[in-house]
Amino acid sequence: MTVAAIEAVDVSRTYELEGVSVSALRGVSLTVDQGEYVAVIGPSGSGKSTLMHLLGGLDRPSGGRLVIGGRDVAGLTAPELATLRNETIGFVFQAFHLLARTSAVDNVALPLVYRGVGARQRRERAAAMLGRVGLGHRLHHRPNQLSGGEQQRVAIARALVTEPAVLLADEPTGNLDTATGEAVLELLERLNAESGVALVMVTHDQEVAARARRRISVRDGLIQSDTRHDRPPSGGPGGPATLEHAPSAEPRSASGSGPGRPPGGPGGAAGATGRLPRAGGAAR
């Protein structure tokens, strides 16, 4: 039995822009289990990136309850949240965000710096991780000496070098051509299957989303649907899913949340802390 890696209950995020509030998320509840593979889809501006930032502890919710790695972020100071990110989350961004003038191996080793790992061990672990993403021969290349796909693989290695529970990837193939993107995707799926890191990935590609065993559709700051497949339609490396979950009539999506509902505090969603039954194949 596993504990949820991330648990969001009625989470909202409102931006204040020159006196006008913009609701990017309006009450979202979801649980990311360990080792899961989740695709997040939705139109532009629907709040996908906002959701990813919240799930990764990069941002704090305006309302609702968010528990990452068993810790409620509301009770954490900024340094504690930083440490939590370092220990439990790996980010992969569309724009790679590698440090220029810094070798691949040092880019990958960066999170270990903030974990307090010694220089030598840092390099060893970073080099090993680069080997796992197929870049063992590019350790000392700088980002501008690497192709886009290679850069994103360096970024993936950086996200995984700390052995996080969850890998959050926001359109990781958005800046890559189709073939390269496919390779990066396969790498992410393989790492998810091999190391048991939960993978939450934002994508615009329906086909890609279909490969994930769980698909969350976001629209207007709300979860529109949250569905699971028994088995990936296309031959993903995950293998066939075992039917260990009882089917449920109720989709686990934000069934209780809607525009008319006032933003819930932690108390209002107490029931959601228990694990909802998985919706085996049940979709709206």
């Binding site: 930083a82 990110r85 903030y114």
Partner: peptide, 16 residues
């Protein structure tokens, strides 16, 4: 600024 954002994302504290 982007470097700062990235460092924070991978676990740098404000003090770091």
């Amino acid at each position: 600024t982007r470097e700062i954002g990235l460092r924070k994302a991978v676990g740098a504290r404000p003090r770091d």
